[in-house]
C-alpha cells in the first residue's frame, strides 16, 4: 500500500466519527453484506461517511491491508476498526453497537 493511500484512509477515519467502507453507495449498495450494515447504521440515525471501494481500486485493496482484514464492508467508529458485516450484525443483536455509535457522535 502506498503512503498516499495510507494517509488518505488515515484521514478519512480521523475526520469522520463513523466511516463505512462498502461496495456501492448508501442508496445503492452493490453487495448484500454492505447493504446489511447500511441498514443497521441508518436504523441508528447516525451520520456516517460511506466510502465506495468500487470507485477506487487502490482504496479497495488498501483498506484490507490497513485493517488487516480481508473483506468488505468494514466499519470504523471513533477511529477504531469495529469489524465486518458479521460483527456489526452480532453487535447490533446484542445491543453493543448503539452505545458506541452514540459515544462516537458526541
Amino acid at each position: 500500500m502506498s503512503e498516499d493511500i495510507k494517509n488518505k484512509i488515515g484521514s478519512q477515519i480521523e475526520q469522520n466519527n463513523v466511516v463505512l467502507y462498502m461496495k456501492g453507495t448508501k442508496d445503492m449498495p452493490q453487495c448484500g453484506f454492505s447493504a446489511r450494515v447500511v441498514q443497521i447504521l441508518n436504523s441508528h440515525g447516525v451520520d456516517y461517511e460511506a466510502v465506495d471501494v468500487l470507485e477506487d481500486p487502490d482504496i479497495r485493496q488498501g483498506i484490507k491491508e490497513f485493517s488487516n482484514w480481508p473483506t468488505i464492508p468494514q466499519l470504523y467508529v471513533g477511529g477504531q476498526f469495529v469489524g465486518g458485516c458479521d460483527i456489526c450484525v452480532e453487535m447490533e443483536e446484542s445491543g453493543e453497537l448503539g452505545p458506541i455509535l452514540q459515544e462516537a457522535a458526541k
Binding site: 488487516n68 482484514w69 480481508p70 469495529v82 465486518g84 460483527i87
Partner: peptide, 13 residues
C-alpha cells in the same frame, strides 16, 4: 473479542 476471533480465522485461511 469478536474481532480477534474473526482475525484468528482469517489468519488460518
Amino acid at each position: 473479542t469478536l474481532l480477534e476471533r474473526h482475525q484468528l480465522i482469517y489468519k488460518v485461511l
